[in-house]
Design a protein around this nucleic acid. Structure first.
Lengths: 106, 106
DNA sequence: TTGACATGATACCTTTCGGTTTCATAAATA
DNA sequence: TATTTATGAAACCGAAAGGTATCATGTCAA
């Protein structure tokens, strides 16, 4: 009964993990390379990468003795799509807010 | 140095809170009304609503002795907009994936 | 004013989170 | 082969999360 996005949302809850995703948007990286960008141990970064992987937000590919982490656009889009549930809502609501602000200006 | 979306992402990490947001998309509700929809105490629901409020995802308005919880489209859009950072990325990547799938089909 | 009702707030408990340290393993290289 | 390099994994720790129960407060209504 768990939503498919659950692990994705969980993965996005931590600022370090969101930061990692932005890093990986520029280029694929090994664990060590990702870890260079943070003030914590490689083991801690590895944990974050595991959670990102579980959330389907990255994929990991073994290349010899190193493992390359790559952003996974499909998983990211899965979480993104969750918001479309509210499309109708905020279209109308933001319009309402906008027109009320206009009214206040007059 | 904390991102403005941090509290929003934190609020979205819990499935009960995401469920509350979908409820509030259909209509504004008091705490008691929200609590009717879940198998937990009103106090627990109140905590979730507080976290949603801190994340700017809902607003709360006092009306006599009851407090009405309302979806806040602005805060929701703030989190939504975080994803636009990856727009360019997944446009190109999803296209790549799609064409690779097409190739496999041939 | 008294009582019922809707909520706020606090103390407490268990589990999960985010980090560390330490040790094991697999692959590249001298 | 011996050693370095890149990673995996487990034990451990303090803090935060998600619940509960309990009591306090403010408001409506008879």
């Amino acid at each position: 009964m768990t939503e498919p996005e659950q692990l994705g949302f969980r993965a996005l809850a931590d600022p370090t993990r969101r930061s990692i995703l932005r890093l990986l948007a520029s280029q694929d990286m090994t664990i060590a390379e990702v870890a260079e960008n943070f003030d914590m141990t490689r083991a801690a970064v590895k944990k974050h990468l595991t959670i990102l992987d579980q959330g389907n937000l990255i994929s990991v590919e073994t290349d010899g003795r190193s493992r390359v982490n790559r952003l996974n656009p499909i998983g990211l889009k899965g979480v993104f799509d969750w918001f479309t549930y509210f499309d109708a809502f905020w279209d109308s609501r933001l319009d309402t807010l906008k027109s009320e602000i206009e009214k206040d200006r007059q």
